[in-house]
Design a protein around this nucleic acid. Structure first.
Length: 812
RNA sequence: GGGGGAGUGACUGAGCGGUUUAAAGUGCCCGACUUAAAAUCGGGUGGUACCUGCUGUCACAGGUCCCAUGGGUUCGAAUCCCAUCUCCCCCGCCA
C-alpha cells in the first residue's frame, strides 16, 4: 500500500473493473430473495447532476450495496423520464431536437453516476422517449380505453391570445400569461382525453392504510382524494319543466334552511334559465369570471360576488321557492357545480346571503340550548329546528333521515364525493407519446389504433413549437394526420395530442423487470419475481401526482390480471432537500450549483459520497457545505493510514484483547442497525468512533476480524477505497461480493457495567460492577459508596429505585 | 384559514425517560513536521450565569443553573404532557 491513497487512480480503476466483471448485473434467480430498489425516474437535464441530486442517489446506492452483501439479489436500475415539457423547452432554447439532446444529457447523467460509484445495472437502462418504450405507454392507453377508463370530454383550458397557445395552469399568473402578465388569459373549451382516476378514488384511499410510507405523504394523498360523505339532491327549476339543479351537500340536515341556490358561472344551466331582465348582468358576470384563475377565485380573502339569474328553484323539502344565483365561489369542477345555500349553517353561504340581503334562516341550534352566534353561521353539529319532519333530531340522525326521505321521494340519495378530479392527459405539445386513437370520417367514430400497429411513431418534426392554433404541432403534418380507419379502411385522422409525461412514469418500474422484452410491456415471470418495488425513494414533491397516477395504473393492471399486486410501492421514503450553501435552491441562474465533478476531482468519489450521507439525516433538509467534504476526506485518509499500518505489520492476527473484539462486534451491531433504518449519518459516525479506537491501537493489538469487518462495514459507503484496501489485505474477489459480517451478541456484551448512583435525582457516584451482578449486590455497593455517604449523612433513605444494569436512585 | 414537520454548543448534527456538556464531523486554539505556508499528524476546545473556599484580581477547586420560552408529570426530563413563540413544507371558498 502506498503511503497516500490515490483516489484519482483508484476511482476509475475500480469502476472499470466492476464494469468488466459486471458485478452489478441483476439476473433472475428464483432460489434467492430479490430486493428491488428504485429511485424516482429522473428527467436528465442539460445541467447535469448537482451534489443535491446525489442526496438521493448515494444513500440508495449504499442501501443497494448493503442489501447485496446481505445476500439479496438486488435489482437497482436507472432510466430516463425523457418525454415532456422540460425536454422540449430546453431543446427549443438550444436549437437542437430533443431526440438529440436527451441521449446526450442521459449520457452525462450516466457518466456522473458512474463517476461517484453508483452501482446500477446499466444493461437495464431505459428511455421513455424511445419507440421501444412509448409503444407500451400507448399500449397502456389502449388498455385503459378498453376498460372504459379513457374518455373524451370538453374542458375549459387557459388560452393566451398573444402566444396563441394553451397554457398550463401553473403558467397562468394573476390572471395573465406568465410571459407577459399584462395580457389576460381566457378559458377556451377544448375536447380533451381524460383518465377516469376517480373510479379508483375509494381504493386509492383505502389501500393507503396498508402501505409503509411517510405519514405526511399519505395524508397529502388523502387530502388530495378528499373523500366527503353527504347527499346528492335535485331541486326543480320553476318554469323550466324537466330542468333541475343537482347539487351535493355534506349537510342534508340543513336543507330546510336553504334560502337560495348557487350555480358556478360556467354551469350549463345558467344560460338556459336566466330571465331576460337579468341576461345582460349575468353574461357580464360570467365573462368576467371566466377570466379569473381558479387560484384567485378560491382565495378566501376575496369578497364573494354573484349575480341573480332571475330564476327560482323549488325546495322540495320546505316547499319554498328560492332564488338561483350564479357566483364564482362555486366551482364547476367540484361536485355538480351547484350548491344549496344554507346560510345559517355555512359560513360562505352566510357571507354571500348577508351581502345580497338574502334571508338567513336557522335550522341548527347548539345541543346545549345556547343561542347560536348572530354574526356568523353556526356550522357545528347540534339539534335540528324549523325543519318539518327533522325537528328535534340531532344532526347525525337528521342527516340520515333527510337522505332516507330524499331516496323515498326519488329526489336524491346519500352519496360520496371526491375532491380529486379525472386526470387530463391530452397535451397539445410535440414531445410526448402520440395518443393512439384514430377518428374515422366515414362513421366508425373514435377507433383505437390496433395493438399490432403500435407504436404510433412520433414523427421527426423540425418545427415543433406550439402551433398557436391550440392544436398540437403534429396537426400540421398531413402525412401523420391522414390515415385509414383500422375498422372500415375509410379516410380517417389521427389524434394529434400527445400523452402527459406522467403516463410514462406510471409504469416504468415494471419495465425494468424485463427492459428489452418486445412482446409485451413486461414479461410476466420477471415482473412476478422482481415486483413490487421493495424500496422506492424520491422527493416529496411527487407526493401527489406521480404516486397517485402510478398507483392507479397498477390497480388497473391488477384488475386486468396482468400482475399480482395492487400497490407498486409498498415502502416509500423521501430524501430531504439539499439546499445550496446560501440556503436557496441550487440553480444555474443563482450561480450556486456545486457539481459532483468538481468535488470528485478535488476530494475523490468516496469522500463526496461520505459527506452526502454524513451531512444530516437522510430524510431531512440541509444546506450544502464544502467543509464537510474536507472532513470526510480526512477520515478516509485516517482509515487508509490505519489499514496501511496493519498491512505493513504483516496483518497480525494474534491476541487482540476482549475489549477490541467487543468493540468490533458492537460497531457491527450499531452500523447494521443504522443502515437498516436508513440513518446513514449515524452509521458513519459509529464508524468514525471505531476508527478513533483502532487508530489508538498498535497493529499487533488488532486482528483480521476486527480489521476486515471494519472494511466490509465501510464498503457500501466508500466502495473504491475499501476495494483497494480489501485487495491489499490479500483478497482476490471484490469486497462488494463479500457477505456482510456476522455479529455475535455474546462477544458484543460488556463484562463490566457502570451503575449510576443518584441521590435525590442528582448523580453522586458511578460504580463499576460485573454485568451479571444482582440487585442485592448493586444496592449494597451503592449504599456503601463514600460519595453517597456524604449526602446520606446518616439519614435513612425513604426510597431506593433500582433500574437493572443502569442505576440506583436514592430518595431522602 | 386548515394540516404536517422542526427548534440542542461558534456551525452541521447525535441523543428521544436514568452514566450527559451532551456521539461524530466542521470551525477554533496549542504543538510536531517545514525556511515558510498548505497538506498531514498529536493534543485541546461550552457558558465566562450563579454560589462556596483562599486576603483581593487572575487562576484554581467544589457546587448550582443552562438543550426556543413558560408551566406540569416523575425518585429522575434535552427526552413525556400542556401553553406560548419562531422557522420550514403541503392544502386551501371542496359545498
Amino acid at each position: 500500500m502506498d503511503e497516500r491513497y490515490d483516489f484519482r487512480a483508484a476511482d476509475p480503476k475500480w469502476q472499470e473493473q466492476w464494469e468488466r466483471d459486471q458485478i452489478y448485473r441483476a439476473v433472475e434467480d428464483r432460489s434467492r430473495s430479490e430486493f428491488y430498489l428504485l429511485e424516482m425516474f429522473p428527467y436528465p437535464s442539460g445541467d447535469g447532476l448537482s451534489v443535491g441530486h446525489l442526496r438521493n442517489y448515494v444513500p440508495c446506492d449504499v442501501m443497494g450495496r448493503y442489501k447485496r452483501m446481505r445476500g439479496y439479489n438486488v435489482l437497482h436500475p436507472m432510466g430516463w423520464d425523457a418525454f415532456g415539457l422540460p425536454a422540449e423547452n430546453d431543446a427549443l432554447l438550444k436549437g437542437f431536437h430533443p431526440k438529440e439532446l436527451v441521449p446526450r444529457y442521459a449520457a452525462n447523467y450516466r457518466r456522473q453516476l458512474k463517476m461517484v460509484g453508483c452501482a446500477y445495472d446499466w444493461s437495464r437502462e431505459i428511455n421513455s422517449s424511445t419507440p421501444e418504450y412509448y409503444r407500451w405507454t400507448q399500449w397502456f392507453f389502449l388498455l385503459l380505453y378498453r376498460r372504459g377508463l379513457a374518455y373524451r370530454a370538453t374542458g375549459a383550458q387557459w388560452w393566451c391570445e398573444k402566444c396563441r397557445t394553451i397554457l398550463a395552469n401553473e403558467q397562468v399568473v394573476d390572471g395573465g400569461c406568465w410571459r407577459h402578465p399584462d395580457t389576460p388569459v381566457t378559458k377556451k373549451d377544448l375536447e380533451q382525453w381524460y383518465f377516469k382516476i376517480t373510479d379508483y378514488a375509494e381504493r386509492l384511499l383505502k389501500d393507503l392504510d396498508d402501505v409503509d410510507w411517510p405519514e405526511p405523504i399519505k395524508l397529502m394523498q388523502r387530502n388530495w382524494i378528499g373523500r366527503s360523505q353527504g347527499a346528492e339532491l335535485g331541486f326543480a327549476v320553476v318554469g323550466h319543466p324537466g330542468r333541475e339543479v343537482r347539487f351535493f351537500t355534506t349537510r342534508p340536515d340543513t336543507v330546510f334552511g336553504v334560502s337560495f341556490m348557487v350555480l358556478a358561472p360556467e354551469h350549463p344551466l345558467v344560460a338556459e334559465i336566466t330571465a331576460p331582465a337579468q341576461r345582460a348582468a349575468v353574461e357580464a358576470y360570467v365573462a368576467e369570471a371566466r377570466r379569473r384563475t381558479e387560484i384567485e377565485r378560491l382565495s378566501t380573502v376575496k369578497e364573494k360576488t354573484g349575480v341573480f339569474t332571475g330564476a327560482y328553484a323549488h325546495n322540495s323539502f320546505s316547499q319554498r321557492e328560492v332564488p338561483i344565483w350564479a357566483a364564482d365561489y362555486v366551482l364547476m369542477s367540484y361536485g355538480t357545480g351547484a350548491i344549496m345555500g344554507a346560510p345559517g349553517e355555512d359560513q360562505r353561504d352566510f357571507e354571500f346571503a348577508r351581502k345580497y340581503g338574502i334571508e338567513i334562516p336557522r335550522v341548527t341550534m347548539p345541543a346545549d340550548g345556547s343561542a347560536p352566534p348572530l354574526d356568523s353561521a353556526y356550522s357545528p353539529y347540534g339539534t335540528t329546528v324549523n325543519s318539518g319532519f327533522l325537528n328535534g333530531l340531532p344532526t347525525e340522525e337528521a342527516i340520515e333521515a333527510a337522505c332516507r326521505w330524499a331516496e323515498e321521494k326519488k329526489l336524491g340519495r346519500a352519496t360520496l364525493n371526491y375532491r380529486m378530479r379525472d386526470w387530463l392527459i391530452s397535451r397539445q405539445r410535440y414531445w410526448g407519446a402520440p395518443i393512439p386513437i384514430i377518428y374515422c370520417r366515414r362513421g366508425c367514430g373514435i377507433v383505437p389504433v390496433p395493438e399490432d400497429d403500435l407504436p404510433v411513431v412520433l414523427p421527426d418534426l423540425k418545427q415543433y413549437q406550439p402551433s398557436g392554433t391550440g392544436r398540437s404541432p403534429l396537426a400540421s403534418l398531413p402525412e401523420f394526420v391522414n390515415t385509414a380507419c383500422p375498422r372500415c379502411g375509410g379516410p380517417a385522422e389521427r389524434e394529434t395530442d400527445t400523452l402527459d409525461g406522467f403516463a410514462c412514469s406510471s409504469w416504468y418500474f415494471l419495465r425494468f423487470a424485463s427492459p428489452h422484452y418486445d412482446r409485451a410491456p413486461f414479461e410476466r415471470a420477471a415482473a412476478d419475481y422482481w415486483l413490487p418495488v421493495d424500496l422506492y425513494v424520491g422527493g416529496a414533491e411527487h407526493a401527489v401526482m406521480h404516486l397517485l397516477y402510478a398507483r392507479m395504473w397498477t390497480k388497473v393492471m391488477f384488475d386486468a390480471g396482468l400482475i399480482n399486486f395492487a400497490e407498486p410501492f409498498p415502502r416509500l421514503r423521501n430524501q430531504g432537500m439539499l439546499w445550496a450553501a446560501d440556503g436557496q435552491k441550487m440553480s444555474k441562474s443563482r450561480g450556486n450549483v456545486v457539481t459532483p465533478d468538481a468535488m470528485v476531482e478535488k476530494y475523490g468519489a468516496d469522500a463526496l459520497r461520505l459527506w452526502e450521507v454524513f451531512m444530516g439525516p437522510f430524510d431531512e433538509p440541509t444546506n450544502w457545505n464544502e467543509d464537510g467534504v474536507v472532513g470526510t476526506a480526512r477520515f478516509l485518509n485516517r482509515v487508509w493510514a490505519v489499514m496501511r499500518r496493519y498491512a505493513q505489520a504483516g496483518c497480525p492476527s494474534g491476541k487482540c484483547g476482549a475489549e477490541t473484539t467487543r468493540r468490533a462486534h458492537k460497531t457491527l451491531r450499531v452500523v447494521t442497525g443504522h443502515i437498516e433504518r436508513m440513518r446513514y449519518n449515524t452509521a458513519l459516525a459509529a464508524l468514525m468512533e471505531q476508527l478513533n479506537y483502532l487508530a489508538a491501537r498498535k497493529p499487533e493489538e488488532l486482528d483480521r476480524f476486527t480489521i476486515e469487518s471494519y472494511v466490509l462495514l465501510l464498503a457500501p459507503m466508500a466502495p473504491h477505497m475499501t476495494e483497494e484496501i480489501w485487495r491489499a489485505l490479500g483478497h482476490r474477489k471484490s469486497v462488494h461480493l463479500q457477505s456482510w459480517p456476522d455479529f455475535d451478541p455474546e462477544l458484543a456484551r460488556d463484562e463490566m457495567i457502570t451503575i449510576v448512583v443518584q441521590v435525590n435525582g442528582k448523580v453522586r457516584d458511578r460504580l463499576q460492577a460485573p454485568a451479571e451482578s444482582d440487585e442485592q449486590t448493586i444496592r449494597a455497593m451503592a449504599l456503601k459508596s463514600a460519595a453517597v455517604g456524604r449526602y446520606l449523612a446518616g439519614r435513612e433513605p425513604k426510597n431506593i429505585i433500582y433500574v437493572p444494569q443502569k442505576l440506583v436512585s436514592i430518595v431522602l
